[in-house]
Design a binder for these strands. Structure first.
Lengths: 169, 169
DNA sequence: TATTGTTATACTCTATAACTATA
DNA sequence: TATAGTTATAGAGTATAACAATA
């Protein structure tokens, strides 16, 4: 699986479980112990977000990783692959194919830096910047729809906690 | 990478960036656009939680997936592999190796169900139940340490949001 | 026919080691 | 030596297709 599940809700679907079939109906599996950990809820929620994100990006020809890389390149023109790998928290070797893909789709350019001919300066093309606009808008609007039912205070607290967990480690 | 990064903080390490070196110091990469999405914060935070969880489980001989499966088996004695796969939201073929691993470590038993000889009833052994106790305690105490600096209200709001995202999809 | 568990296979993401070309 | 980018490779997680045994 592309780490992002394209899986659809084939969940238990909450069968009515009338008295008639109660006997042979398997009881739903309890995850009460797992639920005690916030990390469990985070994994489950992230799966949902990730699936939604992937489906949002697919029609634009992007994956989560190429989306992230494109956004960082547009926002930080001229950065190097090492800097980008560092920002994305992945190893340099794994970034190569991501940058290759963006370059092949003519969304970015690798340009040699005259002052240090080892490094590439990464810059988005016009097409890359245009796709960036569309992709960012799509991602934010999809997420907004997913989070519509929460109030600002809840979302703010969630963001604070998540950000701070990241910061510490 | 085992999806759980064993990576340590080799992060930018916030160099002082004095006026002297400001010129040749690369500016830190900005992720301001990505930060607008809660999903981005969730991914970053989940990586941290996941790394901590993996390191917590490693000395106990468990991975995240075998831990999850063991907990669900102990909490739901006799469940089938299909039920377990469904609860873990993974495909049945991928559960086989997880159950194999738990069985080889003599933490669980596969027992044929007389009334339906296609299915296995999964049950933990005494060793499995003992490891469950230790693992659950370790996981919860590690997470408590990681979340110590947040107040109950923040954590409650976070849990509410994450749970609800999972529920909807 | 349909379901349970299984095998085989493929794809994505990630990590490490070792290479090259520059510095 | 050390760094930037690359290649090759391996391991973990996940998905689909197809099979045997059983219902």
């Amino acid at each position: 699986m592309p780490q992002i599940s394209g899986k659809v809700a084939k969940r238990a679907a909450g069968r009515p479980a009338t008295k008639a079939n109660a006997a042979q109906e398997p009881r739903p599996v309890s995850d009460k112990t797992l639920r005690k950990a916030l990390g469990y809820h985070m994994k489950r929620a992230f799966n949902v977000i990730q699936t939604d994100l992937s489906e949002t990006l697919k029609p634009l020809g992007l994956r989560m990783l190429t989306y992230t890389a494109l956004v960082l390149i547009v926002d930080n023109p001229g950065l190097s692959q090492s800097q980008l790998a560092d920002a994305m928290d992945i190893e340099r070797p794994n970034l190569v194919v991501i940058v290759d893909e963006l370059e092949q789709n003519e969304l970015i350019l690798r340009e040699r830096v005259p002052s240090d001919r080892r490094t590439y300066a990464l810059n988005a093309t016009l097409a890359g910047r245009q796709l960036y606009e569309r992709a960012v808008a799509a991602v934010l609007s999809h997420e907004a729809r997913l989070l519509a039912r929460f109030d600002a205070g809840q979302l703010e607290a969630t963001k604070t906690v998540l950000q701070s967990i990241r910061a510490e480690g």
